[in-house]
């Protein structure tokens, strides 16, 4: 996978506004629309919500990795959002989630979907990286932190 290319400054938000899980997901999908590779916003949102219904992607330490597959995207797209104060995302540890990494990839095409998700979320295992991410003041800083 060419190092986290799908993630760009345009698909990063340092201050998500949504106060519920659904609102956060919709806001993140809107960020993805900015990538220009999405043909049907609602189909993408449905793919993400359907995946969340099967099992929440809220992990531990404030991390959530909502993702889905749909042919309404041409290629793998990714977004990253930060929610100040966090939001209830039905996370594994029961804590509010504040860092969201969203990926959507074409359903009928093979490609490194989970691999990308794993690569981008691996640095987030490190508490220091998470702290820096939450303290970042520009989207460029976030990108630099994750691209290493």
């Amino acid at each position: 996978m060419s190092a986290k290319k799908p993630l760009t400054v345009e698909t990063i938000s340092l201050d998500l506004q949504g106060a519920t899980k659904e609102a956060i997901l919709a806001e993140m999908v809107d960020l993805l629309v900015a990538s220009g590779h999405i043909r049907d916003r609602d189909a993408v949102l449905k793919a993400i919500v359907d995946r969340e219904k099967r099992m929440s992607t809220g992990m531990q330490n404030g991390i959530a990795i909502p993702h889905g597959k749909t042919d309404s995207v041409d290629c793998l797209v990714a977004a990253l959002g930060i929610k100040r104060g966090g939001v209830d995302f039905e996370a594994l540890d029961g804590q509010p989630s504040n860092i969201f990494v969203m990926t959507v990839s074409p359903d009928s095409r093979t490609g490194p979907h989970i691999q990308f998700l794993a690569e981008i979320s691996r640095p987030l295992n490190d508490a220091a990286v998470r702290a820096k991410l939450l303290a970042a003041t520009t989207r460029e800083d976030v990108l630099k932190l994750l691209l290493g």
Binding site: I114, Q115, L117, R122
Partner: peptide
């Protein structure tokens, strides 16, 4: 160890 996240996510999915 560095590919454990990927392995876990793949199997979980």
């Amino acid at each position: 160890a560095q590919y454990e996240t990927l392995a876990r996510l793949m199997v979980a999915e």
